[in-house]
């Protein structure tokens, strides 16, 4: 696996030292003379490998260390410890040959020039990335078609809606056809249909070019639609690396048993587990994972069951649970 990987991260760590101060005038005056410093371990001992063509979702609550990790991999930050290699380069050496093959897209920040037409910003990217006239024209046409940009690129960025601007940002960031994409919350603040469009586009770009994509998002829909694999990070530490179903089965402490009755059941009993919903014809019960089999057979023995299904809880719920407890135990 290691030889085939395009991104390889070993024991990566980043520690910040930040000043600390309380609110109020008095504290402000005190801090002029005496500063208390505190160490923050933003990322601790994180290791993983990513193969070409993979789309990997990077999950974690705010402040988990996702952005710090992405910044280290895109060469913006030096780690305090550990190593990383992307496309054979050490990212933070910022070799121009490396920078020319990757891109970083941040949903909350834009890099198009505010006052000039989008197409002019693209001209700048063309000059910066030394894209040949032919390549530029061909790729631009492709991107315009895929993302439906025809109407947008001649307007100044300030006149575009948030979603339109994001499409233009993404197109601009891909003109040099990067082999590695770091996407930090690319769909944040967008409406549902625009989110879907961007998601589809990322999948399409990945399929056509075989680029590796690392993506953070608060929207599970993005992750579910795009990522075969997720990496979960919390308090700077790697909690999980694997596929989505695996994440659920590993971290969810519960399963949901739904039963359909062949005849109306009116006596409700909570001895099986936590009743999520009950009607005369259907119950949904949440049970601890270890007891699933026991409860299921008890239900089958006790009640007039027509149909019984056992399911995992929704992914959001699992993630929330993981982040709430911190260790997923």
């Amino acid at each position: 696996m290691s030889s085939a990987s395009i991104i390889s991260v070993k024991n990566l760590g980043k520690t910040y030292t930040v000043p600390e101060r309380e609110a109020g005038v008095k504290a402000a005056v005190v801090s002029l003379f005496h500063r208390t410093m505190r160490e923050i371990h933003a990322v601790r001992d994180v290791s993983f490998e990513i193969a070409p063509g993979e789309i990997v979702g990077f999950l974690g609550p705010n402040g988990a260390g996702k952005t710090t990790t992405l910044k280290m991999l895109s060469g913006l930050l030096h780690p305090t410890s550990g190593e990383a290699s992307v496309l054979g380069f050490t990212p933070w050496e910022r070799d121009r040959a490396y920078l020319a093959q990757m891109t970083l897209i941040m949903g909350q920040r834009n890099q198009l020039q505010w006052d000039i037409p989008v197409i002019d910003s693209y001209q700048l990217f063309k000059a910066i990335f030394r894209i040949s006239d032919d390549d530029y024209k061909r790729r631009l046409d492709e991107l315009i078609e895929w993302l439906d940009l025809q109407e947008l690129i001649n307007k100044p960025a300030r006149n575009l809606s948030l979603g339109e601007r994001m499409k233009c940002e993404i197109a601009g960031s891909l003109l040099h056809q990067p082999k590695v994409l770091f996407l930090d919350e690319p769909t944040i603040g967008l409406d549902v249909s625009m989110q879907r469009k961007i998601r589809e586009f990322v999948a399409e770009y990945n399929a056509r070019t075989g680029a590796a994509v690392m993506l953070t998002s608060h929207y599970m829909a993005d992750i579910e639609a795009l990522c075969q694999r997720v990496i979960v990070i919390h308090h700077g530490t790697l909690l999980y690396d694997g596929d989505l179903p695996g994440l659920v089965s590993r971290f969810s402490p519960h399963k949901t048993i739904a039963v359909e009755f062949s005849e109306p059941v009116t006596t409700i009993s909570d001895k099986y587990g936590e009743l999520v919903s009950t009607t005369e014809s259907r119950w949904e019960i949440r049970v601890p994972k270890a007891r699933t089999a026991v409860v299921a057979s008890a239900l089958l023995a006790d009640l007039p069951i027509d149909d019984l299904t056992i399911s995992e809880p929704p992914i959001e719920e699992v993630i929330e649970h993981v982040f709430a407890t911190g260790d997923g135990a």
Binding site: S74, R96, M106, I128, F129, R130
Partner: peptide, 9 residues
């Protein structure tokens, strides 16, 4: 957004 400048070759 200075980060974008740093990621340019």
């Amino acid at each position: 957004t200075f980060d974008f400048l740093l990621t340019k070759p």
